[in-house]
């Protein structure tokens, strides 16, 4: 099939494509041209004039996309695990020493010939479009903000049952003894964004440009640009859960 004909085809979406098949496609080196707004990799054909494919609105979402639709794009291979993001987060959001709102995971990857490579992976709440934590909360203490889609916590309503901790595919929650409630990342909404700052504390503290934060519904934003680089693969963590995360990963 010619590329011009391919371009005319309607995008079927990624949910019908098994992940194994998707991986095979990616191995062929075909450019990823579209990304769900807060979803998974979509189009795998090399469509030259494609800008983006916003995908279907999740059927159970109240509003989508949000305005602003906050998102973080993590350029993973820039991360050097200096953990300034974690320090800044703890200071800004009064996270106790035993807790965390974001983490940097380490992986030692076998690259053949007996050699190994270090990979660091920052992780935080993915502020999913279809958040499993919100779905399971018995008291609606955790909810998706109607304006910006941030997954928020209402500490007063939280009964500390930890069901959300179990439901979260990203291990992004912890029990805060001081509040007797679950605490989690809220993209620094109360501490920074609502006070006019444009970046989260972690994004502002990162010396290597790993954490890129912005409004992905704005086509001129850095995050939108980063997930639409046709020569780069973009992925999300645990797409099979159907949570449709708003934190994307890519490499330089």
């Amino acid at each position: 099939m010619k590329i011009r004909d391919l371009e005319k085809l309607e995008n079927e979406g990624a949910e019908t494509l098994p992940s194994e098949e998707r991986r095979k496609f990616l191995r062929f080196g075909l450019a990823v041209t579209g990304v769900f707004l807060g979803g998974s990799v979509l189009s795998l054909t090399s469509v030259r004039d494609a800008k983006s494919y916003m995908g279907e609105m999740p059927s159970d979402a109240e509003k989508w996309p949000y305005k602003p639709h906050y998102s973080m794009v993590i350029i993973q291979n820039r991360c050097i695990d200096c953990e300034r993001c974690m320090e800044a987060c703890k200071q800004t959001n009064h996270v106790p020493s035993y807790g965390f709102r974001t983490k940097v995971y380490e992986q030692i990857r076998d690259i053949g010939n007996g050699k190994h490579e270090r990979v660091f992976m920052p992780a935080l709440c993915n502020h999913c479009n279809r958040p499993p934590c919100v779905r399971v909360c018995p008291t609606t203490a955790t909810y998706k903000d109607k304006t910006n889609g941030i997954v928020m916590m209402d500490y007063k309503r939280c009964i500390g049952c930890k069901t959300c901790m179990a439901a979260c595919p990203y291990n992004a929650r912890y029990f805060k003894e001081e509040n007797r409630a679950i605490d989690k990342c809220n993209f620094c909404f109360d501490t920074r964004l609502s006070k006019g700052e444009t970046l989260t504390a972690c994004a502002a503290a990162c010396p290597a440009g790993v954490r890129n934060f912005g409004d992905i519904s704005d086509t001129n934003s850095n995050v939108y640009q980063l997930v639409h680089r046709p020569d780069k693969v973009v992925w999300v963590l645990r797409p099979e859960t159907g949570a449709m995360p708003n934190v994307f990963y890519t490499n330089d």
């Binding site: 291979n77 991360c79 050097i80 953990e83 974690m86 035993y98 380490e106 270090r118 990979v119």
Partner: peptide
């Protein structure tokens, strides 16, 4: 980057310190 940067994870391993914040 990570050929030289072992990060806080690597630092703690090399220095034999318990990783911070893992309580």
């Amino acid at each position: 980057c990570t050929a030289c940067h072992a990060g806080v994870h690597g630092y703690n391993k090399l220095m034999g310190a318990a990783p911070a914040g893992e309580g």
